[in-house]
Design a protein around this nucleic acid. Sequence first.
DNA 1: AATGAATGAGGGTTCATTCAT
DNA 2: CATGAATGAACCCTCATTCAT
Lengths: 218, 218, 218, 218
Amino acid sequence: MAESRSRYDEKLALVLRTAASIFADKGYHQASIRDLSRATGLSLSGLYYCFSSKEELLFLTPDHCFGPILENLEELLTGVDEPRERLRLLIDNHLRFFVGNMKEMKVLSHEAESLSGEYRRRVNAKKKRYTDLCMEILAALSPAESTAALRTATFSLFGMMNWIYNWYRPDRDEPVDRLADRMCRLFLEGYLAGGALEPRPRDAGGSTDESGPSIWRR
Amino acid sequence: MAESRSRYDEKLALVLRTAASIFADKGYHQASIRDLSRATGLSLSGLYYCFSSKEELLFLTPDHCFGPILENLEELLTGVDEPRERLRLLIDNHLRFFVGNMKEMKVLSHEAESLSGEYRRRVNAKKKRYTDLCMEILAALSPAESTAALRTATFSLFGMMNWIYNWYRPDRDEPVDRLADRMCRLFLEGYLAGGALEPRPRDAGGSTDESGPSIWRR
Amino acid sequence: MAESRSRYDEKLALVLRTAASIFADKGYHQASIRDLSRATGLSLSGLYYCFSSKEELLFLTPDHCFGPILENLEELLTGVDEPRERLRLLIDNHLRFFVGNMKEMKVLSHEAESLSGEYRRRVNAKKKRYTDLCMEILAALSPAESTAALRTATFSLFGMMNWIYNWYRPDRDEPVDRLADRMCRLFLEGYLAGGALEPRPRDAGGSTDESGPSIWRR
Amino acid sequence: MAESRSRYDEKLALVLRTAASIFADKGYHQASIRDLSRATGLSLSGLYYCFSSKEELLFLTPDHCFGPILENLEELLTGVDEPRERLRLLIDNHLRFFVGNMKEMKVLSHEAESLSGEYRRRVNAKKKRYTDLCMEILAALSPAESTAALRTATFSLFGMMNWIYNWYRPDRDEPVDRLADRMCRLFLEGYLAGGALEPRPRDAGGSTDESGPSIWRR
DNA sequence: AATGAATGAGGGTTCATTCAT
DNA sequence: CATGAATGAACCCTCATTCAT
């Protein structure tokens, strides 16, 4: 019994891992269930025994990833009050998971908006919880002058961290702990030094076209 | 002759503008040529008179976007030697284009890797030129201790800026010049203050598992 | 042993009853074995312990229906010689079964031709026996001038009766004994008054296009 | 221009005719678009150029049939006031179309309930108009004592006529005009003689179990 | 110059059925 | 006895693309 449960779980894990890899490589919509069938060696209908639709598969993939990130972080933060240390833990935890599961995280970043309905709601709820946690830490670090400013800072940090699936190569770049350290200091110093303060006054006569030139409609 | 040339150009411009919008909304692969046909009012075969394949269309879209960014930046930088100001100009230019053409830029970030062959080569060449320019500026700002460190800094900056299509909403967030200003100071202060220096020594016995825990294989 | 036999019979009866209901609701081909599995609470493989194929299931359903109709009728007719009364009994018996088992009878009428091979042969044999019995009664009522005329009369009667699954609603229409009575008199009077006689001469020059206008080929 | 229009129409007509035939032979749900592709020699996607879904195809098939029946009948009835003659025209028209387009009419009778939404609504509207017309004629023939009685008579007539796709074989049965004549007299005499009157009182002590024995639940 | 008509390849999904356990 | 897991075949439908006109 435990045997057969374990067998099924192993297979499910294989399917999810492979799916994440394929989704990451080709993108969710480009990836076909037939690709997954070929890559796992399972039949088409055998796959549908594990999940009920391609969309559910997309949901399962990053959802199984996101849970651990959050849980692990909340555990790490327990008993730590110093905001700088809390931020360091968040960044370290985040990058560790991203580098360790780059494919899954790319899917999470890239394809989550392809979800709909309940799936979308659940993924968004977790994302929001995570984002809120980060915002709290930043707010504790330095009094942000506005919500908009806090948003800019928060998403700048996430952008910095999440972007790594576009460039990070383990064989060529720094190991993840140095990466985390560097990003941590980069963001922290910048944020404390002024990133969170009101912007300096612009030079008089500077461009006031806020939206910038439209390329197509110029 | 000039007449018909102009007619053709008008039509091509309409097609490219509409395509960029559709690609940005639905993603390149989800968008069908039929969608484009419906949205432009042109027939399927009429469209193929303007471009030779869907992939060419994808190439044209961000290519027309990227050109202006680079050209505009190179013009702005002419005669400016001070590295801090050069960086400020790059960030400002970048964000202006991104906010002003968010849909196209999303395609550029998201779908460029769907290109193949010659198309891919040409887009990558431009990206590399742009990246190299940014690296030079950063290198001039502060002596990076290693290529890897410079890469981390450069792509942290790009991540910060490019991520905005995931969160920036003109009606809710800061106008683009304040956004640029804030990101500029955030990065600059962080980079100069230590983001570019060697990381502080880690606690002895710290984790050396560089790849972090794997979620699936734990 | 008797115990387990009885258990099996109970299960079989449940399966057949449920199957008849599902077939009637959705149609034989639309109904899936999974539907049956869900509706009975039995597992897929558990079902296949009761029958060997979906087709057998279709066979069993109307076959269990048709038996009682025939047997009951033959019993009722025993000792009754008067043709009018015999016809009345047939109609009454037929409608009672149809109204009482509308779902099953719809399957019988609708889907029996989906059977093949031996299954089909057996159902057809019973149908033929039933049809022949009706024809005999009609022939005894009035000397039909031709086989074709007798066929027309017989199948007109069956059409009249079998059609009810298309329109009869117990809560809205007459109770079944009045229905039977009305149909009986309708058919009987019509049949005796002339439905069985040679048709009156058609107007000279009348249409001789026997097949009528073809809608598609006109 | 007229040429190409005619070409497309010819093809559409071929598709509809073939579809009706296949639907009639195998049933709507059993018939696959691939069957239609094989039978017409057109490619799968070529077919979808003619219609937009299988359900639309099912709608088109009998809808194209039902229009002519109604229109033709209404034309025939113009200027004819005598109810018996009106009924005769209805029956004659109905049977002509049914015999001439037996496959399509089988689909109409058998499969119309597989339609959904707007398709279903439109087919039902036409059916109702036709049914109402028939009821009016019957009501004019003899004062029915109740709506239920009128319904019974009307649907008995339709059952008689529609059932023919189950048994009528042109090479073996009477030609359609004799068939029409016979059914007309059968129904007319029966209806006038008493089918429309109140049923005679039942023998005292007769069965009052209106729903008849349930086969499965006895 | 421009299009209506057509196509082959492939998409996600469901089905009746089997078989090791 | 009974089932969970698996399968091959087939389903309806959409796609980018072409070609005669």
